[in-house]
Design a protein around this nucleic acid. Structure first.
Lengths: 362, 362
DNA sequence: ACAATGTGTGTGTCCGCACACACATTTCTT
DNA sequence: AAGAAATGTGTGTGCGGACACACACATTGT
């Protein structure tokens, strides 16, 4: 095989073919007006016909215009989940900056729906070209997004989707699918256990708003068993825990729960399995339950390494951030069409296949 | 946070600071010679000091030089493993071409070490800037690579590594690590089975050369059990099968093997689990063994969908090809330093988390 | 009728870099 | 010591596109 580079057509070629100057062609490409209807139509026709694709490099080079992105994510501390997408965002910005792009970012965070809305409104300012955000609760998100739409401000949702909203793109995964996957894994591992298997689901989150996202996972999780008519093989228990940072309170809760029964498997829907793992370690059981959680945050990785957590599921959190920035650039600077939904892979990690630090780019 | 774009330094800036013209700076950057030692040293110093990063867009725009890549992979038919890396390669080339790069490729394939060597030598021609290849057997690869080295021809190895070879980069994974991961998964799933577990390993490959790559996986696989002192919990059996395309011969073999015993789990080290799955389906067992294999080829995906294969492990085959091309471009065109080893993620797939076609970029 | 405004179109410069070429200076011949 | 060859350095042009500006011509107002 021998792929030869096709002769790229340039603005100049279009101009010649249309019998006008490149300035005119440029004007219709950028909708800068001041072009008579017939000429405009002719040029548009030729552009379509020749399948003109602007040279990205030349475009970026010539356009001094800086790109300013608004970033709106939940507030977080070091080592918490939202550090990961944010890392991806920073990496992408850095990389593109290195390559000569001029990218600014204004990052705001929220820890309540009200602040989300407020911060989101602040990002409506003129100099912001687009917004990358994780929507808080449904109501506020819908409202904010309407403003964005009215102001022609493109936005990308990451990690959680809101159906039927005119976003540039959604980047993340379907939580129901995630739940299904975890359920399948647990089912496979516990299927040879004699008798009814005791299975716990723990929705552990920092506050009520984040809890809602977890419930979708739990729902997918349960769907698996009901769909496969396996419900009577298991004894399900669900615990919703609002965590306020203290390991001790979780220790106490676990001790109490475990005094009544020791489950065969535990699924922690949030990103804080490590807390449960630590509590369980302290109980010094002779037979540990299977423990499955989410996300490659440091604390979780450590628990997988010492095998107090058996599996971690993750949805390429870092990559979500990276792709969000990249999509914005492609959409705004290159004027490319972006996929409406960009689903990440659902990765299953255990001690043996944890990504090592020896490598990796986003 | 507000990341402002740093003032990018240009060749011009360096020239000013060094008290010379941009032509001179350009010469030292491209090692075009004809620069006196002291000046060269000074410029190099300034470049390092100012951390000069050439503007990629301008560079690509200005450089008309086409990049010609040699691709040397095992021959394959549609739906076979090597289609995947190749897909990634094509995608990368296409994408970069779209962006204005001028990339040619010459693709050769081999189905024996001799042909590998012969094809590889053909790629030594002048107009080829670099070679992306999967090394065949050790001996021939070493020999070929020596020629490349002597002729200053950069090359990237994908999928299989050869230690101590001056490749630009290796892209793939450690087969031993892969084996360990599969072993862990199987161990987790079979641990609750009573008594000694019957475990088969099937090295199924098209020919002997490919077989060697599989043995490394098998070795990692066994390491897991010996390392954890689990050997006596299992009854291991290993079968090396050279497949010549006929499903029937495999059917017969499986029927014979299964008539003696039905294993609890089977690990097929190559990319052709689907053949084993088909054979097993025909046996109509009441209790199917756990079946684990490799790679997201169509036939395997179909078997996972109907759950005749339980898990697929894969090493981002498509991405390997994509990254190989990208690395070549970055190295040759941008003169960036490339990671010597680029390890892929080890992905565990089951029916519920198979990547859907609804999305995806490389 | 003439100026003031508006509309459509072409020209020129710049973006940062690669590379060819011209020119200046040094070193080597014989 | 004069010319040839080698070595060092600066200038100019082009890559494809963005955008400011100039300008011709038509339209409107007074």
């Amino acid at each position: 095989m021998n792929l030869k580079s096709g002769t790229h057509i340039r603005i100049k070629d279009i101009a010649e073919k249309a019998g006008c100057s490149i300035g005119t062609v440029d004007r219709v490409i950028h909708n800068r007006g001041k072009v008579s209807e017939p000429v405009k139509k002719r040029i548009l026709e030729i552009i379509r016909e020749l399948d003109y694709k602007p040279n990205v490099n030349a475009r970026v080079l010539a356009s001094k215009r800086p790109l300013t992105l608004g970033i709106l994510l939940p507030s977080y501390r070091r080592g918490e989940y939202w550090e990961l997408p944010n890392l991806g965002i920073k990496e992408a910005i850095e990389r593109y900056e290195e390559q000569g792009y001029n990218i600014n970012s204004i990052q705001l965070t929220y820890n309540s729906p009200e602040k989300f809305l407020k911060a989101g409104m602040k990002l409506l300012s003129d100099e912001i070209d687009g917004v990358i955000m994780n929507p808080a609760s449904y109501k506020e998100s819908i409202r904010l997004v309407r403003f964005y739409f009215q102001n022609n401000k493109p936005f990308i949702l990451i990690d959680s989707d809101i159906n039927g909203v005119p976003s540039l793109s959604f980047i993340g995964n379907d939580p129901v699918q995630t739940g299904l996957t975890v359920a399948k894994l647990i089912h496979q591992i516990t299927r040879h256990i004699q008798g009814q298997k005791k299975l716990w689901t723990i929705n552990l989150s920092k506050n009520l708003d984040q809890m809602y996202a977890l419930l979708a996972r739990e729902s997918g999780f349960m769907n698996y068993y009901s769909g496969k008519l396996l419900l009577n093989e298991y004894d399900f228990k669900t615990f919703d825990i609002e965590d306020h940072g203290s390991q001790k309170s979780i220790d106490e809760l676990m001790e109490e729960l475990f005094s009544k029964e020791v489950p065969h498997a535990i699924y922690v829907t949030g990103s804080m399995v490590y807390k449960i793992a630590i509590s369980i370690k302290k109980l010094k059981l002779e037979q540990k339950p299977l423990l499955i959680g989410h996300d490659l945050i440091r604390a979780n990785i450590d628990r997988v390494m010492d095998e107090s957590v058996d599996f971690l599921i993750e949805e390429e959190a870092k990559r979500q951030g990276y792709l969000a920035v990249e999509s914005m650039i492609r959409s705004i600077l290159y004027k490319e069409k972006i996929e409406k939904k960009q689903f990440m892979n659902l990765l299953i990690y255990t001690r043996e296949n944890l990504p090592s630090d020896r490598t990796e780019q986003a």
